[in-house]
């Protein structure tokens, strides 16, 4: 397998043929902000948080193959401004009330916003009306927090072989749906053993009766910023 090097913010990063910029950066211990990327799944390239400049051209680093000699910029003032704006878009698109969210402290959206110093949502809120689905005996779906990253879709389809989740609608009306005529999670074959039950980066797919189990101060991103632990195994209970 052939290898090469590119530079990330001036530092040499080695890569193997076929690796994306994101994969090579993570292997080298470098953090590029991201939400829809997860090392265990096929890259999706939709959240665009990981946008970098490759030889001056903007591209998503999770889908862009690394190329030898490329000059990649990531941690610059201008790029982080764009990322912050993308985060702000995600925050105003849904209903993200961190103080009352069980995922707070373990949420990648929140932690990424901390990392990038997002002090406010900046834009006018959409305040959409998205009813929760509490039909399932063990799990709650709170669509208010969905960022449409498709990780649960990929996990259910590619790992669980179930297709419990999908995106329907279009544009700003894009929404997460479940595999049941009733539209209710309880009427799908979703189960706690599914990979899809454990990949949501935000607080949509939640185990019932387990909320707020960790005290403030002891949660994943209380302990370390997300740049230090981009994909911690979030312990349940």
């Amino acid at each position: 397998m052939s290898e090469g090097n590119f530079t990330l913010d001036g530092e040499d990063i080695p890569f193997q043929e076929g690796q994306t910029i994101m994969q090579a950066a993570m292997a080298a211990g470098k953090y590029i902000p991201h939400l829809c990327y997860h090392p265990e799944f096929k890259p999706h390239g939709s959240c665009k948080l990981c946008t970098v400049r490759v030889n001056g051209r903007a591209t998503a680093s999770c889908t862009q193959r690394a190329a030898s000699g490329a000059v990649v910029e990531s941690n610059t003032h201008a790029i982080n401004d764009e990322r912050r704006a993308l985060l702000q878009m995600l925050f105003v698109e849904g209903n993200h009330f961190c103080p009352s969210c069980e995922k707070s402290g373990n949420c990648q959206l929140q932690a990424t916003a901390y990392e990038l110093g997002m002090m406010s949502p900046h834009y006018d809120h959409f305040f959409p009306n998205r009813p929760v689905d509490a039909s399932h005996p063990e799990y709650l779906l709170d669509f208010n927090r969905c960022i449409l990253c498709s990780l649960c879709i990929r996990a259910s389809r590619d790992v669980d072989g179930k297709n419990v989740f999908a995106l329907s609608g279009r544009g700003i009306k894009t929404r997460l749906i479940v595999n049941a005529k009733s539209g209710r999670l309880a009427d799908t074959n979703f189960s706690e053993a599914d990979k899809a039950a454990h990949v949501c980066p935000v607080g949509v797919i939640l185990k019932k009766r387990k909320g707020f189990a960790q005290p403030i101060g002891g949660r994943t991103f209380d302990l370390n910023p997300i740049s230090a632990t981009p994909h911690p195994t979030i312990k349940e209970g």
Binding site: F91, F97, S120, P121, F127, R130
Partner: peptide, 18 residues
């Protein structure tokens, strides 16, 4: 200066917005 969740994004009271 806007201070706190409610000033920043409506906070708990804004959960009535739906």
């Amino acid at each position: 200066i806007a201070i706190g969740a409610c000033a920043v994004n409506g906070g708990l009271p804004a959960q009535r917005n739906s």
